[in-house]
Amino acid sequence: MDFNTFIEVIISIAIVACMGCIIKIYAATLKMKSRLDFNHFILKEKLVAAKQENSTLVNKIVLCNEINSKLIQSFFDIINKLLSLQKFIFEKGQ
């Protein structure tokens, strides 16, 4: 085998190997992209669900805050009314 033939054989093998590598890398890239896209999709779904839950919780907190302020106010009003009643009973008893 002369030098030129040897070179040609080497180049041919290198070309074939390169083409094989390209195909393998391309396939691996596609597979990886598909896996990462799936993970991405799952995370997005979880995030959407968490946001929905958050929205529900915020609504509940809003309601809670509303009733709390009203409830405390009413509670003090009742206590005042009871104290007023107590005062009235004391005055009547004396």
């Binding site: 890398i25 691996a28 890239t29 990886m32 992209k33 990462l36 896209d37 993970n39 991405h40």
Partner: peptide, 10 residues
């Protein structure tokens, strides 16, 4: 490109 894609996705 593969590495870039991986980093971006991660």
């Amino acid at each position: 490109n593969q590495q870039k894609l991986r980093n971006k996705q991660l």
